[in-house]
Design a protein around this nucleic acid. Structure first.
Lengths: 140, 140
DNA sequence: TATTTATGTTATAGTCTATAACAGTCGACA
DNA sequence: TGTCGACTGTTATAGACTATAACATAAATA
């Protein structure tokens, strides 16, 4: 029972990412949040007034798929959608949204620390720059 | 427009993986294959007779979800499912399956080479061991 | 032998993604 | 200033992937 793809970094990237995402999802669900929702709360907290479209571009979520996600967060009382000009909706968290975003941030911090600690020390510093090179959108 | 999660390796892992998987999917689709199908062809080629369940465990695909995938490959004439004992199905590729597996392997090779080349040389050797440490199932 | 475990299957639901079409608005520019 | 192209948000829809429960059957084990 040999996996001939184990030598390929792209394959390992996919498998490691899937496993990590599943673990994170199981941790964040205790707040009633999905991974994408936890992410959105963080970004809107940091960028109040950001439009739905701009948020979608930041996260590679298409406009059409953004609509129900944002509507759901608004319906839960976590986020407001205020018309900024005639077509755009500016997003901002409610007080309750900020509170939940902070709780989510704590879970994220713990998760990321756990993840980092699993990496052998001599490789740790190399992971981020290597991954960033694989992520074209990270123009920074 | 700041992304406060850019400092987190788990987040970058997810984003990099998503981008890489999308790129691979767009390359492998020219063979009429999905990512999971291309993977399965490689593994069955390397492990003829492997059971559906064992394959599923190897790829973290559940039995129930394995059924339609395997049935689809069989219906396309790429794979055979032969009863090995009264309950298990042993998988093996047809001639056509082997041919397509080889074409898929060429695309995989090119893709993985391209991916590797994007990583700055000084980080390259560290990516695999770091990712393997994040993937608990890689007991190897 | 009796009980437990494993395999494959069906059915079903949920999540995420992708595309097309539409109405309304904004901005550039002739 | 008026027009045209680009942008925003929305709805509807389809596809892929995942997760769970229930079932029949077969194998393994105590």
């Amino acid at each position: 029972m040999r996996d001939p793809l184990l030598q390929y970094p792209g394959y390992i990237l996919r498998r490691a990412s899937t496993a990590a995402m599943a673990e994170f999802a199981s941790r964040i669900v205790v707040l009633g949040l999905r991974t994408s929702e936890a992410t959105i709360l963080q970004i809107v907290a940091e960028n109040p007034g950001i439009s739905q479209s701009a948020l979608g571009r930041m996260l590679d979520i298409q406009r059409a798929n953004m609509t129900p996600i944002a509507a759901r967060l608004e319906a839960r009382g976590l986020m407001r959608r205020l018309p900024s000009d005639g077509r755009s909706l500016g997003l901002e968290l409610t007080d309750e949204g900020h509170l939940l975003a902070e709780k989510a941030r704590a879970i994220i911090d713990t998760f990321e620390t756990d993840l980092t600690n699993r990496i052998p020390a001599e490789h740790r510093a190399h992971l981020m720059p290597a991954l960033l090179a694989l992520w074209p959108s990270a123009d920074a």
